[in-house]
């Protein structure tokens, strides 16, 4: 049964109906996560990656709403639940959220409560989901903080978030997310707000915890370095749609979508100094979110735009190769270059 997905998102649409128009934050995105797998979702700001995670947890802020699609989650007892059909404040949703699926947010300062101690915030989840007494919850909290290598855990428990550093706050967030033993951890840019040295510590910590617990991780980020080092399977999103998915090696060495190619080649990479050479940039910027696009959403910025089919017809996500899928009319013909020339097959 190892191949049955833990989570399967099918054609999810989450829209925001605003006075100025409708923002299609997630517009027909699909995703599949197997038990124990690490999946990376990559995209620029506004591509809908955070809204997708929030849709799965059913914490989309108003006026956002899941319009259509299914979010199939295989519970611990083998039962498959469609999270999209649950009442978002109902008992069933609350039993899953925080206990079976938990989340780490980007900004630990704003997502932790400033008026509760670290211990109270972690303990709350334990009391709620595992029915512990206050005293047992406290002991459990200290153990949870110890697991994330928090220095002086017995003292940190009684401190407020503002008293500790950014890296320690992110450790506390991780301890909170993991204290109920989730089967799926969703990490929304968990290291973006941190310095590189702290980021390296947190990534090493997450890797170790995954080895110990065997949970699946959905990792949202815009940092292609983090994705390459942390994930097995990658989903590239652009304007609410999945434009390419595949195993991490296929995406990095054999990209098929022009947007993936552009992402891979627009970052200056360490150790690849190109004296005097220019970076390849993508022309233009992200379009107005209220616009309804006909044709391929990437067409206005795409160097391979044919001016005809690309602007008329929105490409469908279709399979190229064993596990790779791409949303481009010309995927096979473009012969796009990956991050290296010589590829070990």
């Amino acid at each position: 049964m190892a191949d049955t997905p833990l989570l399967k998102v099918e054609d999810l649409c989450t829209h925001y109906h605003l006075p100025q128009g409708t923002v299609r934050a997630v517009d027909g995105a699909s995703l599949s996560v197997k038990p124990g797998q690490t999946v990376g979702i990559v995209g620029e700001s506004g591509c809908g990656k955070s809204v997708m995670l929030r849709s799965i947890l059913r914490i989309v802020p108003r006026p956002g709403r899941i319009e259509s699609g299914r979010i199939l989650y295989a519970r611990a007892d083998g039962q498959v639940t469609d999270l999209a059909a649950l009442d978002q404040d109902g008992r069933a949703a609350r039993a899953i959220r925080g206990a079976e699926i938990s989340m780490i947010f980007q900004e630990p300062m704003t997502s932790l409560s400033p008026v509760h101690t670290i211990g109270d915030q972690i303990g709350e989840a334990l009391i709620l989901h595992r029915d512990l007494s206050r005293k047992a919850a406290r002991a459990e909290t200290v153990a949870a903080l110890d697991r994330v290598a928090m220095p002086r855990a017995e003292r940190i428990v009684d401190m407020y978030p503002h008293e500790i550093s950014g890296g320690m706050r992110q450790r506390a967030m991780i301890a909170m997310a993991l204290c109920c033993g989730p089967r799926l951890l969703m990490a929304d840019e968990p290291t973006t707000a941190l310095d590189v040295t702290t980021q390296a510590q947190i990534l090493a910590l997450m890797r170790r915890l995954q080895e110990e617990d065997g949970m699946a991780i959905v990792f949202v980020t815009h940092d292609l370095g983090v994705v390459a080092q942390m994930t097995e399977f990658v989903v590239i999103m652009y304007l609410g749609r999945v434009v390419e998915t595949g195993p991490v090696r296929d995406i990095y060495y054999r990209p098929k979508h022009p947007y993936t190619h552009a992402l891979l080649h627009s970052i200056p990479k360490l150790g690849q100094r190109r004296a005097g050479a220019r970076l390849q940039s993508v022309k233009g910027g992200l379009p107005d979110p209220y616009l309804t696009m006909t044709g391929c959403p990437f067409a206005p910025r795409c160097p391979h735009n044919d001016g005809d089919r690309c602007e008329r017809e929105a490409p469908a996500l279709r399979s190229v190769g064993a596990a790779q899928e791409v949303r481009c009319h010309y995927a096979e013909r473009l012969d796009l270059q990956g991050v290296r020339k010589a590829v070990t097959a």
């Binding site: 890296g167 390296a200 510590q201 990534l203 994705v227 080092q229 990479k269």
Partner: peptide, 24 residues
């Protein structure tokens, strides 16, 4: 430590970050 902490955007190049202890 700073240089080694930057994740390499290549899945086959494994990074070996020299992890720093503690905070700034």
């Amino acid at each position: 430590a700073l240089l080694s902490a930057v994740p390499v955007p290549d899945p086959e190049v494994e990074g070996h970050p020299h992890l720093l202890q503690g905070d700034v």
